[in-house]
Design a protein around this nucleic acid. Structure first.
Lengths: 222, 222
DNA sequence: CGATGGAGGGTACTGAGTGCCATCCGGGCG
DNA sequence: CGCCCGGATGGCACTCAGTACCCTCCATCG
């Protein structure tokens, strides 16, 4: 029934647009009563994001189930990868929805409120883990926002490519940037020993950003 | 007229709540026609944020007017301080609105879409300034999100204190954290030439975070 | 003086979302 | 077998936000 409603809704949305489709149109095509639509989806927007409620619950559980042994930042990045997987599991559906949300302001606003709930879940988890640290809530909020932004950046570039590229590469790269900015890079994969990289730095007093800048231009040089 | 509508709306919102107040109630109290309300405010939510459209325009102009001589991150932080001032100019009004948005989901969603537009303005500016750098758009998006999150963290803590504390101290502190995380602590003295740093990297294929980790431990070694 | 154009008002309509009640159906129980 | 009961569904009527269309008023200008 949910599936029937979602299928009917997307057929019409793609045919004639979101705003040109009324709930009556959807239920007529699905052959169910209007009242039933609102039993399954509290609003017309919800039919566009049919599985986010479950995903959000999964994510909260994932974070709640993590213990002291997990690096907080890495854990949140893993949670973001979980969300990414929700999209990559159904590339065609995700791309369709992306095109829809991109051009319908109302859907964009709705998506924002969904994303905001993910961000809050991240931030709440980090606040718990950072309790006691100076500026713990500030760090938690900023890092949560950065992780979400990195995730969205990777997700959107994957969606723009019609789901062709490698999404997990992109998200790893994006989250790696956040981890490099906020420290504690990650528990390295055991095979990757420090010998993989040899770095020689002169002028120890130089600020870190100068070092990073120099490395970037070195890497970009070839 | 706008002022009359805003005043009437807030009186009713505080008296009996946002959702219990219809647009008809507002226009009846203000003594104007229903049609006029929608001439001044495209939706019922807009009456709660009467000055954000102007503020957003100011901000975009502020960023557009900045030249190459401005450090991008610092410039965006200054833009965020501009937004903060919009709130601190009318503490009583801001606190009332905060209480309202905190408990009305619809208003929270609307606020998100407003904040999102600020974030996009920041990100667009930074994308322009980072054009050419590796991962320029990623950095732009992440930094924009971090600045907004820091600003909101400071803003909310100020709002929760009923506008009593020192807002600009709080926002400086929050933005300082972001600046420390994303580098370029200050416009470096021109004396710092690239020769200040020499970096040799082997195993080019290693992920960036490994490189950074290695550098950090090298720097920490002494 | 009349024309014009912009600001406000009024009316009727669409469509989302809700409350309430009727209906249907499958299973347990006397 | 008939009854009952609870959950799922359908139907109807209502509220309210938002829009389209047209009217009035009034100030300004020719």
């Amino acid at each position: 029934m949910r599936e029937a409603l979602v299928a009917a809704a997307f057929r019409l949305f793609l045919e004639r647009g979101y705003e040109q489709t009324t709930v009556d149109d959807i239920v007529a095509l699905a052959g169910v009563g209007r009242r039933s639509f609102f039993r399954y989806f509290p609003s017309k927007e919800d039919v566009v994001f049919p599985d986010h409620e479950r995903c959000l619950a999964d994510m909260t559980a994932f974070l709640a189930a993590s213990g002291e042994e997990h690096e907080p930042l890495a854990r949140v990045c893993d949670a973001a990868r979980l969300v990414m997987r929700l999209y990559t599991e159904n590339p065609a559906f995700s791309v369709q929805r992306y095109r829809l949300t991109k051009q319908v302001p109302g859907l964009r606003a709705y998506e924002l409120s969904v994303v905001w709930r993910y961000e809050r879940a991240f931030a709440e988890y980090l606040r718990g883990r950072f309790a006691g640290r100076p500026d713990g809530t500030l760090r938690a909020d900023v890092i949560a926002a950065a992780v979400v932004a990195a995730h969205n950046n990777a997700l959107r570039s994957w969606l723009r490519s019609d789901g062709e590229g490698d999404a997990s590469d992109a998200v790893d790269r994006a989250l790696g940037y956040v981890q490099s900015a906020f420290g504690e890079p990650a528990p390295a994969s055991p095979a990757e020993t420090p010998e993989d990289v040899v770095v020689v730095v002169s002028r120890r007093g130089a600020p870190l950003w100068r070092v990073v800048q120099e490395i970037e231009s070195t890497l970009a040089r070839d």
